[in-house]
Each structure stands twice: as structure tokens, then as C-alpha cells.
Amino acid sequence: MTEPILEMKNVVKYYGDTAVLNGISFSVFRGETKIIIGASGSGKSTILKLIMGLDKPDAGRIFVEGEDITKFNERQLVSVRQKIGMVFQESALFDSLPVRENVAYRLYELGVDEDEIDAKVRQSLGFVGLEEAIDKMPAELSGGMKRRVALARALIGEPEIMLYDEPTAGLDPVTSKKINELIITLRDIKSVTGVFVTHRMRDAFTLATEYATNGGRQISFHTEDNFLCIANTRFLMLRDGAIIFEGPDEVLRRSKDEYIKRFLA
């Protein structure tokens, strides 16, 4: 518990002449979910890309499971990325491959044999409730279905860390509830460490107030009450490339900061 799974230390990232991230430091511990909120363009997706090593910071350091990945090359990053699943903002499904091969992609790369792949693909699609879409092409799916296939694809290697980039943006309440519950299940039942990026406060607070318990057969969801506080979910708020809030939802809600109050309203 003492060593963080993910850590950023004074990370600076420039695009052109503007500092998109200007000295970001935070850490995420095992089994914890960090909810990153902030206005559009505040650098949320950039943080996830840096953690994944898809882009390099201009200054600062990034650690994954204690390992400094800042200077890693593509080949060294392969083993780091194996531990991390990422759901991209626009799903980023491979549009030339059917859903089955999209979801199985990581397993093909690892050379897992066909029978095992098939079973795992069905299991993963079952988890997001999309088993019937297995032979469809991405172009035939709705936005919400794509999002869930992307989730299934990210989950298939059973990564210890999940990065979600606005997985519920633009979805109807029923589908977003489903996705939120999936994420809560991963967090509470499977102890997956997560970073959840969103600007929908409703989903953020759902994640911060609901929890899942495993009653042997069935997973059930509950809402925290006055006696109970979810300890494994923390907020982080970005503004102009800097962190302006870090802490649990109770504190965030009581914040006196004008900008935060407007954001929550």
C-alpha cells in the first residue's frame, strides 16, 4: 500500500508554445480510482497519454509500479503497456477488423491459442453486455456500443491498471449507468487501479458514492450513506495545466473556490 502504482512528478508538457500541463504531480495507489475532472482542453487526455507512454513529457517524471518510464523507448514500453488497459476518448476501434478481432487484439499479439482467445473474447464482451455484436464491424455499431467494445478490448488482458477517457460522454443514462457499474465492479471486486477522466459531474459523483459488493453469486450496488465513506476514490481537478483540487468528494462539494463551485453547479 505504501508505494503508488502510478505517479507523476512535476510533469510539464508543451504543445507548440503553450504549456498544456504545467507541473502536474499526483499518485494513485493500488485499488484506488482517481477521477480527473476539468474543462475541455484542460489536459486530461494528455495525462492519460503520458501515463501510457504514447507521448513524452517535456519535463518531470512518470512512474508505473515504481518504474521510471519517462525515458523508456517503444520496446521497453511494451511490457509496461501490458499492465495497462486504456479506453480512448473516441473509442479508437480498428475499423478494418470485426469486433471479435478488435477485442482479441492483445491476445493475438501475445500468441495465445485460438480456443482460449474465443472463450476470453466472449467473456469480455459478456462483461460489457455485447456478446451478440461479436461478428459486427465497428462501422455497424452505435457510439455507445463502440465505447463498450473499446472497454472490452482494454479489459481482455486483465490489466491491473485501467485508464478511462470519458467513457460515458454523450451516452444515454441507461448505458452510462451500465458503464459506471462496470467500472465500479472492476474497482471494488477486482481491485483494479484506475484513472477516470470525465467532465460529467454526475458520473464522477456516481463513482465516488456507489460501491459494489460480491454476494457470492451476484454483484450488487449500494450507495454510501452518512456512516460510510468510499475511501478508494479521489478527485483531481485541472485548470490551465495545473491541479487546483485534490481530495475526496465531500471536500470537493464543500469547496469555497468560485471556479469549482461553478463547475459543480
Binding site: R81, E90, A92
Partner: peptide, 11 residues
């Protein structure tokens, strides 16, 4: 469409 990034992310 970030498919190249997704590919890298998947190893």
C-alpha cells in the same frame, strides 16, 4: 482517429 495510438497501447 487514434487507432495508431490504440495499437501502440495494445503492445
Amino acid at each position: 482517429t487514434e487507432q495508431i495510438n490504440a495499437m501502440r497501447a495494445l503492445g
